[in-house]
Design a protein around this nucleic acid. Structure first.
Lengths: 250, 250
DNA sequence: CGCGGACATTGATCCGGGTCAATAAGAGCG
DNA sequence: CGCTCTTATTGACCCGGATCAATGTCCGCG
């Protein structure tokens, strides 16, 4: 802790961190945490700015403190697929590899607790419990990616849009930012644009828009503005999404 | 080694293993390897048999010794997506979780070196270098899944089929089972049926078949029988697959 | 407050690929 | 060796969603 940079206040920045109890930091013992605290620094990215460019050197990895990060792959002719959305407490980047095959872009304003990659790797190798946590997190991401593969390969446009809303709704629910204050119906803020939705769902903006209106006229959802959704009956939305509640977790 | 079960011959079964130098076994020190040897036993599955059923208990994990395993997800109405294909040396199952959300089916006859799950987890936690290897393997699978997401979300039917052939060809190449003996053109055996291809590519058997004939008439591929493919010019196939060679690895 | 630019919705049209149906080609087997 | 069963190919048709185009809405800014 004596080696801390002089620009740091005496209070450790982790103390202010809203996500530290939900990330790999929560697994760290005191010593590991203080090392992470020492090598980490907060970086901010404006909405739409690039965090890591595909194929280029990846000097740092990090943990999302706030905002939404989208991971994209693009083909040489410009077709683009979003292959992952990262929210607060998610891990960005990849240890043990100095390039990575995605671009990370800020879908909203984003704050990241960044670690110089090799320093982070050193902490990992000295603290197997952190690496274990990273393994679990990676396995979960793999599951999510495979769920999305089924969505992309099997589902209709309507199911895709409904699934995306479920995805966001559940995340909002988990973070307790879901209840509508006026009438206590579940509601949430959509943190991305229609075109991001389309790129994640393997479809087009027009189709997304049409399906949203369909869901609206079927009274499955209600909007107060383009990004604020109210879902009177979550189960009906899940049904339209083709999600078998009995087989799903979280 | 004294604790080895009596049914085991004195020669350790690992000595005969064709994949041990390409799996996490290659990372194991002598002690870890002998533990894995002790808890592992070879299980065989006939083509089309189920290895692990989605949602059910997962009593063991393992390493594919030979054959091809497909991981599938199915929707309640029967629509099915293959979310991964596993080949020799790949890891099947998931540590630190007693259910998993996929079915694993033998796409060909399959041999697996199986480990009782909790015993395997114990070895993992005692040997961080093994867990590290598992992390790397999982990260690679995540990359593969995300590549596939782009395929499913962005690519045309022709690109999908060509991409699948590239995928198999590269794997065959890597394992040195690719050269055609007669004329030394790259060739390989397709280890799965057309309907598996379709389920992996998010399309239908008919479309797969049509696209294969298209590639045939365009002289990009040649078939000696329904499962033996010859690719005179890999680069042309890659071009049709929409794969940017400069940006891809292995 | 009104203007311009980005984002979202809606409409009209078209086509890639899904669906249904028939045929062909293997592969096991008595 | 022919029969049957499964798997693959080919054909005809149609529809969901892509594409192209117009309109509407929101927001920041002079």
């Amino acid at each position: 802790m004596s080696a801390q940079t002089s620009t740091e206040p005496r209070l450790r920045k982790c103390d202010y961190c809203l996500v530290r109890h939900r990330t790999l930091c929560s697994m760290a013992d005191t010593q590991a945490l203080s090392e992470l605290n020492r090598i980490g620094h907060i970086r901010s990215f404006a909405s739409a700015s690039t965090i890591i460019t595909a194929g280029e050197q990846m000097p740092f990895v990090g943990i999302v403190r706030s905002g939404v990060v989208k991971l994209t792959k693009v083909m040489s002719d410009g077709r683009q697929q979003i292959v992952g959305l990262l929210f607060a407490s998610d891990f960005v980047g990849r240890a043990f590899e100095d390039h990575w095959p995605y671009s990370a872009e800020a879908a909203t304003d984003v704050e990241i607790c960044a670690f110089e990659r090799t320093a982070f790797e050193r902490v990992l190798s000295e603290h197997p419990e952190l690496e274990h946590h990273l393994l679990i997190a990676t396995l979960n991401e793999l599951d999510a990616a495979r769920d999305w593969m089924m969505l992309l390969g099997c589902k209709t446009a309507e199911e895709k849009v409904a699934s995306f809303l479920m995805f966001i709704a559940r995340r909002a629910l988990k973070e307790g930012r879901c209840s509508d204050l006026q009438n206590s119906l579940p509601s949430f803020e959509l943190p991305v644009s229609r075109s991001d939705m389309a790129a994640y769902l393997g479809t087009t903006v027009e189709t997304v828009s049409r399906q949203i209106t369909r869901l609206k006229t079927a009274n499955i959802i209600r909007l107060t503005n383009t990004h604020h959704f109210i879902v009177p009956d979550m189960d009906r939305l899940a049904a339209v999404a083709g999600i078998d509640e009995t087989a799903e977790q979280g």
